[in-house]
């Protein structure tokens, strides 16, 4: 990570850590802030030797000229970014906005569901629906109360907000489908649902709305390289054929998506990734030891 000279692109202007594993980066890119719409994503390279990773645009500020990314440190790259992406540094590459923007239709009552990190990308959609005059019911789910983020921000664009935690340490005990069921019982006139989160959550969210036949849009984030339709790594199986998430999506009708296929394909570099994380942890450990050792040497002088 390099210190950005003045005017360097893709400068990180703000950072917030929600938990040990979740963090937010606000990156300067005025042209992208103007172009971005809810549902779109970017591809980021944090340094010249890094990999290209897709991240959903969680928010954008046209006046400040920034876009917001919310990231979970799960693999080597996202952990490295957690360590290195400080305010004032810059990303090596940032390209987007990619994908077809979400369709904010004219539904009068919508259910916006976010699981874990998925709360971030569903936020601009909830805001979009609110601005379009819909009655918005938000359902957000986390593992426990320590991982809850953006409750106030999300609540501000919802008419009702249901918080769920797996262990019941905040709000309703259970995962988002619990909250969804409550919302669906109370509001039988919900016309549309948006659900974003881990694939397994989106699968069950889609199953929850299937009996009522409520249109449920999900946002898919499979492995991809270029993000422009060229590699085909992000192809997903739908009931009517194969589509590329990067240019045909990332939003798809959740009742059409083959989530088992998606989850299997997400794991295709798992072993390589596991080794990369192990090496990264090892190098961090060694770096710490080195720093400690150097510090001791300095003291000895």
């Amino acid at each position: 990570m390099h210190q950005a000279p003045a005017g360097n692109p893709y400068e990180i202007v703000a950072r917030e850590d929600f938990s040990d594993v979740t963090y937010l980066l606000e990156v300067r890119h005025p042209r992208m802030a103007r172009a971005a719409k809810p549902g779109q994503f970017v591809i980021v390279m944090s340094h010249p030797e890094g990999e290209r990773i897709p991240l959903t645009i969680a928010d954008f500020d046209r006046d400040k000229g920034t876009i917001t990314l919310v990231i979970q440190a799960v693999g080597k790259t996202t952990r490295e970014m957690q360590r290195d992406c400080k305010v004032g540094t810059h990303l090596h590459a940032l390209v987007g906005p990619m994908g077809i923007p979400s369709q904010i239709g004219h539904a009068k009552k919508v259910l916006c569901v976010g699981g874990g990190l998925g709360v971030a990308p569903v936020y601009p959609q909830a805001r979009g629906f609110k601005e379009a005059g819909a009655y918005v019911i938000g359902v957000v789910g986390f593992r426990n109360k320590d991982l809850v983020f953006w409750q106030d921000k999300f609540g501000a664009v919802c008419d009702e907000l249901i918080v769920c935690t797996d262990d019941g340490s905040a709000g309703v005990k259970g995962n988002v489908t619990e909250g969804m069921k409550r919302a669906l019982e109370k509001h039988p006139d919900i016309e549309e649902c948006v659900a974003i989160g881990p694939p397994i959550m989106m699968k069950f969210a889609a199953e929850t709305t299937r009996p009522q036949g409520i249109k449920t849009m999900v946002s898919l984030n499979p492995v991809m390289v270029d993000g422009t339709g060229m590699c085909g790594g992000c192809r997903v199986k739908l009931s009517n054929g194969i589509k590329f998430a990067c240019v045909d999506g990332p939003d798809f009708d959740g009742h059409e998506v083959d989530f088992d296929d998606l989850m299997s394909r997400l794991g295709r570099y798992r072993e390589v990734e596991r080794q990369a994380v192990a090496r990264f942890e090892e190098s961090c450990h060694m770096r710490e030891e080195f720093l400690t050792a150097s510090a001791q040497e300095v003291r000895r002088d």
Partner: peptide, 16 residues
């Protein structure tokens, strides 16, 4: 079998 892990386009292999 095209969605199995281990099936990819030449573009993806070459770009990587």
């Amino acid at each position: 079998g095209e969605s199995l892990n281990g099936v990819l386009s030449a573009n993806e292999l070459l770009t990587r």
